[in-house]
């Protein structure tokens, strides 16, 4: 339980501190611009190369699965459909 509380503490503090920073300081424009594009960079870093580890011993399955997701998304499929579609694709590929 000591470990759990320690883990909680070091996770919560970095999540919380920015609220107070933003409350106290007005950022210059260049910093606002930087923070504004962080979600797109974060998405990139979260997707790759992590997606290759979906089936760790067969990295290509995750890659093909993500291509399906891209394809569905390009054709404006609903996000739930994209998630399920990619999962089904991976499921079928693991059977193969």
């Amino acid at each position: 339980m000591v470990i759990v509380i320690g883990m909680a503490f070091v996770t919560m503090v970095p999540r919380l501190i920015p609220v107070f920073i933003v409350d106290k300081i007005q950022f210059p424009n260049w910093l606002n611009g930087w923070l504004d594009v962080i979600p797109y960079a974060a998405l990139g870093a979260l997707i790759f190369p992590g997606v290759l580890t979906v089936i760790p011993e067969k990295p290509w399955i995750g890659f093909i699965g993500s291509l399906f997701a891209v394809l569905f998304a390009v054709f404006r499929a609903n996000i739930i459909f994209i998630v399920l579609g990619a999962s089904i694709a991976v499921f079928l590929l693991t059977l193969y």
Partner: peptide
């Protein structure tokens, strides 16, 4: 297990689904 492993792509697919419309 086969199902939960396949669902491992779910969050990646969600990230992709969030990213693509912005890229368009």
């Amino acid at each position: 297990e086969t199902l939960s492993r396949s669902m491992g792509i779910a969050l990646y697919a969600m990230f992709i689904a969030l990213l693509i419309p912005s890229v368009k």
